[in-house]
Computed example of a mutant assay.
Amino acid sequence: MTTTTTLARRSSTFVPVAGLTIFAIASGYLMSLIPLITNEFKMSQDLVSWLASSYYCGLLLGSIIVEPIVVRLGHRVSFVAFLSLLAATVIMMPLVPSQQVWLLARFIAGIAVAGVFVVIESWLLIGDKKERAKRLGFYMTSLYGGTTLGQFGITVIGTQGFEPFIMILALLCVAMLPPLLCKQGQPTLEHPQSLSLQQIMQLRKPALIGCLVSGILMGSIYGLMPLSLQQEGIANEQISVLMAAIILGGMFIQPIVSWLSIRMSKSLLMALACLVGVFAMGIIHFETSFAMMMTMLALLGMSAFALYPIAITLACDELDSAFIVAATQVMLFSYSLGSALGPIVADKFMKTEDGLTAFFFVILLATAIYMLIASAKRKPEVLAS
């Protein structure tokens, strides 16, 4: 009996983390690939920001509609279904290279990825409350580690022709194998409950703001950073290294965030994370050598990638397992809203001399100030039943 329980627990972590890691490699490659191939498919570079916003609008819609699907199908089947939908959009893009089709494909991809995130996050957060931070640390490390590896697809496989899309499609198919082959370990949803508007409003405000800002930063990093670096005359090989540095920074900070989040105020921790990014953007304004840029972008990654796990853990601290799927959907909605708005606003900054550096500096500084104020006047909040 003990052996069976232990295997079930290992499976409950292995299946989502293994599938997520392969998905992240494919997603990381695809996210950095799209801004670099518009010219090859004879489309305007102005389309890049709209493709990013279309994707995050899909993520926003998906965060609203996926909960009943997960509840009805279960985590394992839902994961495979959402990956299959994402794979269909990857097939669509090179076969029909038109602006309208690409915008639609990225919108549908956003819905699919929202489903993947809700499935994985709720899968790992349901269960022992004491293990949530640790499990979420596994989640973020796998996500960012896989995304980092995906960046090197630009260098190893390239950006020309159909080969990148074939590789991404193959990776998504491999990501489906863990939930298909291992049928044990998915969480049991006993009487899952939705959150009313009143209950949503009672969720920790810093958690909602943290997810919103995380979306603004991540949407701009994935959607516009490769193009911004390319416009500065940086070669594709160096762009892949710089993007990997951002994500490696985010990956490196995860165990530190997991350790600190149970030892100090999460609002204060988010403020400190933002200040790291403010420092990095201040330095990069004055020093733009490749080595310094790589170091400061790694610090930006630490700052931006730390916010979401801290915020979602803060939101779920006082929640019963029955509310976890609904709560992750609300947090993803907040993240997606930021992700949809971020590239549009950041695109305005890209037309200025300081570009994305100024955008990140302003957003991170404003968030740090808010989180410091929230930490200073923090009071315990209890979710109404």
Rank of each mutant, 00 (worst) to 15 (best):
A26F: 03
A26S: 14
G28R: 01
G28N: 02
G28W: 00
Y29N: 11
Y29L: 09
L30H: 10
M31Q: 13
L33R: 03
I34K: 00
P35M: 09
P35S: 06
P35Q: 07
I37F: 04
T38G: 06
T38C: 03
T38N: 09
T38M: 03
N39L: 09
N39I: 11
F41N: 04
K42V: 13
M43K: 09
M43D: 03
S44H: 08
S44C: 07
Q45F: 03
Q45G: 05
Q45T: 13
D46V: 09
D46G: 15
D46P: 07
D46N: 14
L47T: 11
V48K: 09
V48G: 06
S49L: 01
S49E: 11
W50V: 06
W50E: 05
L51A: 00
L51M: 14
L51C: 00
A52T: 12
S53M: 09
S54G: 13
S54W: 01
S54K: 02
Y55C: 03
Y56Q: 11
Y56N: 12
C57I: 14
C57V: 12
C57Y: 12
C57S: 13
C57R: 06
G58N: 00
G58C: 00
G58S: 00
L59K: 05
L59W: 08
L59H: 11
L59C: 10
L59M: 15
L60R: 02
L61Y: 02
L61H: 01
L61D: 02
S63M: 06
S63C: 04
S63T: 06
S63R: 07
I64K: 11
I64F: 15
I64N: 04
I64H: 08
I65D: 02
I65E: 07
I65Q: 07
I65N: 08
I65G: 04
V66W: 03
V66P: 02
P68R: 08
I69E: 03
I69Q: 09
R72L: 10
R72A: 14
R72Q: 11
R72H: 11
L73S: 11
L73I: 04
L73M: 14
L73V: 06
G74I: 01
H75Y: 13
H75A: 06
H75C: 06
R76Q: 08
V77F: 08
V77T: 15
V77W: 11
V77D: 04
S78I: 01
F79C: 07
F79S: 10
V80W: 01
V80D: 01
V80Q: 04
V80H: 04
V80L: 10
A81P: 05
A81L: 14
